[in-house]
Design a protein around this nucleic acid. Sequence first.
DNA 1: TCAAAAGTGTTGTGTGTACACCCATGT
DNA 2: ACATGGGTGTACACACAACACTTTTGA
Lengths: 247, 247
Amino acid sequence: MAKDNTVQSYAESAKTYDLAKYAKPSVTADIIIFTIKRSELKVLLIKRKAWPFKNLWAIPGGFVGINEPLDEAAERELMEETGLKDVYLEQLYTFGEPKRDPRTRVITVAYYALISSDNMRLKATTDASDVRWFSIDEIPKLAFDHNQILDYALQRIRNKIEYTDIAFQLLPEKFTLTELQGVYEVILGKKLDKRNFRKKVKEIGIIMPLHETKMEGAHRPAQLFSFKGSSRNRKKDENILKPAKKI
Amino acid sequence: MAKDNTVQSYAESAKTYDLAKYAKPSVTADIIIFTIKRSELKVLLIKRKAWPFKNLWAIPGGFVGINEPLDEAAERELMEETGLKDVYLEQLYTFGEPKRDPRTRVITVAYYALISSDNMRLKATTDASDVRWFSIDEIPKLAFDHNQILDYALQRIRNKIEYTDIAFQLLPEKFTLTELQGVYEVILGKKLDKRNFRKKVKEIGIIMPLHETKMEGAHRPAQLFSFKGSSRNRKKDENILKPAKKI
DNA sequence: TCAAAAGTGTTGTGTGTACACCCATGT
DNA sequence: ACATGGGTGTACACACAACACTTTTGA
């Protein structure tokens, strides 16, 4: 059982009570904030003002406080960037390549958030020109390993939209079936059949017709629906994989 | 944009170049090691010898070296505990509640490993009596938040066995269809239909019949198969969700 | 009256599920 | 000859995919 001599095993350290003996990495929480706007999936990026990667765009993030839970760090960051809270937030993956930040060792716990298009104008776009929504097919080269993190987030939501109800997190309280279908189409990147789609979501019973319609444009008004599922804000431990009804 | 005054945002810190100003947490990699033995799903646990949680069982883990990638820390830990390398290893989730370790702030990046029953006797059981395989339905109260971590790992493999080929990681190179079915049954916790199971795995084309049979007991010998899929050891970035053929 | 999106059913195809008997071996 | 697990096929139910026309509105 050969030990690396710069690193002590957990069991051993327990003997000595000595946890503070070794150099510690910095830990940040980065958050990929998704929304849908003009039928496109968008991500919020911020422009770096200083070395390293000066003038490159990056995923927002910040240090995790020494007494702060990881989720709260991500929530705080989300609040700082968008002014929003109680949105869908899920831990994505932890990235820790030693050289990912040229300054020092930084391990980042990546989260992603899905926010509804109606709340969206609150902040972010107001804040100078160094914070912007990017359509996911116009993502530039990003700072650090952020392209990789973003790709991973995209994979995750593309997978997860097929067997959970995350799609509703991207819509306002009231929405039409065409809007709902649009969310699926833009995330999956393919057209769906209108009749089959409507049949399925209706028989799953996850939406509720309202006594309202939405009129816009010169055509028949659309029935409005609302989401029946558990409300927008999830409890901490619900990040735990929960396979919902497949759509 | 209200800032917490003990914590600085990433964008701001970039201005000042100052990353080392704040207290840093310790970071560990914990690893849940699964195997199958006597038709039971088992987990490797170690007994703690000191405060905190003295004499409780715990998931093996250790500090992440300051220049060590997270995956390597997990691999190293796995090697220390079992003597094995090149096994299936996947990042699970990162746990960081401030009070999860009473000594100081410790964030743990949890991994899980699946190891094949044939390599299994190499280590671990040789090492005193404070390392043991526990059947997953006889898990005692564990140290730290390790029960939660283990539950999460179980959920993950139960989910993932349905749409990936991780099951093969728990079998030796050569196996019978009954053994393969056993892996599914013990992980899903339910009986499967023999004919349907065999039909499906065969039509997926992920296994290859060998010119060998396995005789044991007083009955007809069983055809041996081997796994066609990508080899046992995965490259780093392949942890990235890869939806394989559903079984 | 025209353009534009909303709304609505049926049929074929494929996939999952339920189910029972013969085979090869060791004792 | 018998006990033990290995091995095989068919029929039914259900889910998914393909597909076109009518309705309601504003201009």
